[in-house]
C-alpha cells in the first residue's frame, strides 16, 4: 500500500486543521512528507464541503433509521477513506484507487491523535476557533486550532510508513 498521498483532518465546522502530503520513496523504502501538497487549498476546501454534506445525505437515503456512514469513495485516480468521529472530527486519507477501505487504520490514527494532540496541553481543543476568534495569529488564512504537534507528525509518519512497506 505504497500509494498513500495525503492525510487531512477537518474539525467540527469543516475547517482543515491538519494536512500532510506524502510520497513513497523506493530508495529509502519510506513514506516521505512532501512540501508540495497532493491537493491544493481549493481542492481541500471542496473536499471539506463534500464530506460535510455526505453525512446528512447518507442518513436521508438510508432505509434504516440508524445513522449510516460512508467509509470511502473512489474516483478513477484516487480513493478517499473517511472516518468521522462522534466529536465531529473528520480524518481523510487519500490514496491511489485500488486500496481496500482503511477503516481500522483510521481508527488507529485517531488513537495517535488522542494521545499526542487531544491530551497535549499545548494544543487547544479542535473547536477552539469558534469560541476564540480574537486569538488568531498573524497568519489569518489558517483557522485557530491547527495541529502543531511534532510528536503527532512523527508518530503518523512512522505509522504510515509501516503500513506502506
Amino acid at each position: 500500500m505504497s500509494s498513500i498521498c495525503m492525510l487531512v483532518i477537518f474539525n467540527r465546522s469543516g475547517e482543515p486543521i491538519f494536512e500532510r502530503s506524502y510520497q513513497w520513496s523506493p530508495t529509502m523504502r519510506a513514506l516521505l512528507p512532501q512540501t508540495t501538497p497532493c491537493l491544493n487549498d481549493e481542492a481541500v476546501g471542496l473536499l471539506s464541503g463534500l464530506v460535510f454534506s455526505l453525512r446528512p445525505f447518507v442518513s436521508k437515503i438510508s432505509p434504516k433509521n440508524s445513522a449510516d456512514s460512508v467509509n470511502c469513495f473512489t474516483t478513477e485516480e484516487k480513493t478517499y477513506h473517511l472516518l468521522e468521529t462522534a466529536t465531529g472530527l473528520k480524518f481523510i486519507i487519500v490514496t491511489g484507487p485500488n486500496v481496500t477501505p482503511m477503516t481500522n487504520e483510521l481508527q488507529q490514527i485517531y488513537q495517535l491523535f488522542a494521545s499526542t494532540v487531544a491530551l497535549n496541553p499545548l494544543n487547544r481543543p479542535h473547536q477552539a476557533s469558534e469560541d476564540a476568534p480574537s486569538e488568531g495569529k498573524a497568519d489569518n488564512k489558517k483557522p485557530n486550532g491547527q495541529i502543531v504537534s511534532a510528536s503527532f507528525c512523527t508518530a503518523l509518519d512512522s505509522f504510515l510508513t509501516r503500513l506502506s512497506s
Binding site: T85, T87, Y110, A114, L119, P125
Partner: peptide, 21 residues
C-alpha cells in the same frame, strides 16, 4: 470543561465507540 473536551476524544479513540447524540 477543559478536561472533558479532551478526554472525550481519548475515550472514543481507545474504545472505538462512535455514538450519535
Amino acid at each position: 470543561h477543559n478536561i472533558g473536551e479532551r478526554l472525550v476524544d481519548e475515550l472514543l479513540a481507545k474504545t472505538g465507540l462512535n455514538p450519535q447524540p
